[in-house]
């Protein structure tokens, strides 16, 4: 009898604790809210990057075995995804045009650009001009700056409205 009573008390406490924690956790959100994928715009966009310096391989870049980039010293991302750039040697003032994989979304967008100026130019400030053209018309035109030989890196944020041919009302 005492044994059964002990088991019952044990079940009461453990079961009560289990019931409490289950009920508490049930009231928590199950996971991140479902986000609907943003609508990808299908215009004829061109991204233009113009450096005020010759881009060189960064001697201070992380160089693990899987870090080989197509254009050493240059990194461009659109909304977190890397845009492969195969522009060869990039001299000062050369315009890099990118059209491939330019999947812009309706609403908020963000470019991340990073380029390494020559190590011998530590006394200069450097800039990267970022332009986004829609059918030849600039919709974004910003310059990212770096000083005293530091890597030029920054984000260019902008919003795009639905294109006229995409609106059906």
């Amino acid at each position: 009898m005492r044994f059964l009573l002990t088991i019952l008390i044990w079940i009461f406490f453990v079961g009560g604790l289990w019931g409490y924690t289950t009920q508490r956790d049930a009231s928590l959100p199950k996971g991140p809210a479902q986000v609907t994928a943003p609508k990808v715009l299908t215009g004829s966009y061109v991204l233009e990057i113009t450096p005020s310096f010759s881009i060189e391989k960064d001697p201070f870049a992380l160089a693990l075995d899987d870090d080989a980039s197509q254009t050493p010293g240059l990194e461009i991302r659109l909304n977190g995804r890397a845009l492969g750039v195969d522009a060869g040697q990039i001299k000062r003032g050369k315009v890099i045009r990118i059209t491939k994989n330019l999947k812009l979304s309706q609403g908020f967008n963000e470019f991340y650009v990073k380029a390494s100026p020559p190590m011998a130019e530590t006394d200069l400030d450097h800039g990267l001009r970022v332009r986004l053209l829609d059918r030849g018309v600039p919709v974004v035109d910003q310059t990212v700056w770096g000083s005293s030989g530091a890597v030029v890196a920054g984000t260019v944020s902008f919003s795009l409205a639905a294109q006229k041919e995409d609106v059906h009302d």
């Binding site: 960064d58 201070f60 870049a61 992380l62 190590m119 530590t122 005293s148 030989g149 530091a150 890597v151």
Partner: peptide, 9 residues
């Protein structure tokens, strides 16, 4: 590494 680059400059 980027801090080292700034330090070097």
């Amino acid at each position: 590494l980027q801090q080292l680059r700034v330090l070097d400059a």
